[in-house]
């Protein structure tokens, strides 16, 4: 059991823990960027129903959505080295951080894919036809007309997913990554003031989430300055 509650400790814990915010943000930045590439690719495979790959993507997305991220993390941590050993690649010495990034990239990719797929479909098809009518091919009309609008439509949901993912990174400590949460666990072991540590952590996570929300909202207002996003032309 812990020692008696001492709120003044929070003043000491917060600066100690915030020191490790960088690791958390590093995991987030890497997994969101990779997830974005994965997500857009997967969404395109889905929307254009590329044979075989389409089915593969459906399975991937439904698996990610249907299993807890903690289990995915363990599957990657234990499973990936085992699989790669078959083809004589030994990654058992790879830093735990990379397994976390891979897992969160896969997870973000699946969620982003669904968001992008919805957003691509939400762009009025009439605009694609207009693009064809001015002589664009499929690729040109997708890149120049559909994608920019889909990204704007997707943005609020992507922002929410990123915030969700930020909070999910707090599970990284379970495979030994020394992020904020990991440092918190060692603090608890050393001081036996668990409640104070968790309060300190929640203060930091909460502040970061509020900051992210603020930044996302400003950015959203900026990209939508001039226009209704999903207008379907008529008006």
């Amino acid at each position: 059991m812990g020692k008696s509650f001492d709120p003044s400790l929070i003043v000491n814990f917060v600066p100690t823990l915030i020191h490790y915010l960088g690791v958390t943000l590093q995991i987030l930045a890497a997994s969101v960027s990779l997830g974005m590439i994965l997500g857009i690719t997967a969404a395109i495979l889905r929307v254009f129903r590329i044979p075989i790959l389409n089915q593969f993507v459906i399975l991937y997305i439904s698996f990610i959505r249907g299993t807890p991220i903690l289990i995915q993390l363990f599957l990657v941590f234990y499973g990936l080295p085992a699989i790669l050993l078959f083809i004589n690649i030994d990654i058992s010495r790879m830093e735990a951080l990379y397994f976390v990034i891979i897992t969160y990239a896969l997870s973000n990719g699946a969620h982003f894919a669904e968001i992008f797929r919805g957003a691509i479909k939400a762009v009025d098809h009439g605009q694609t036809e207009a693009a064809y009518s001015v002589g664009m091919n499929n690729g040109q009309s997708f890149r120049r007309i559909v994608l920019p609008q889909a990204i704007r439509i997707a943005f609020p949901n992507i922002a929410n997913a990123i915030i969700g993912s930020l909070k999910d990174t707090s599970l990284a400590f379970t495979i030994g990554v020394m992020d904020m949460m990991g440092r918190g666990e060692t603090l608890i072991a050393a001081t036996a003031h668990g409640l104070e540590v968790y309060l300190s952590l929640s203060i930091i996570y909460y502040a970061v989430v509020l900051l992210f929300e603020k930044i996302f909202r400003l950015y959203e207002n900026r990209i939508n300055r001039h226009q209704a996003v999903n207008v379907s032309a008529a008006g």
Partner: peptide, 25 residues
């Protein structure tokens, strides 16, 4: 083609809408 529901590119300005075909195709 001129469409019943106009089908303008919603993320582009009036000028860009007209320029788009000239530049791309």
């Amino acid at each position: 083609m001129v469409f019943q529901h106009y089908n303008l590119f919603a993320h582009k300005t009036v000028l860009e809408n007209v320029m788009e075909g000239l530049i791309v195709t």
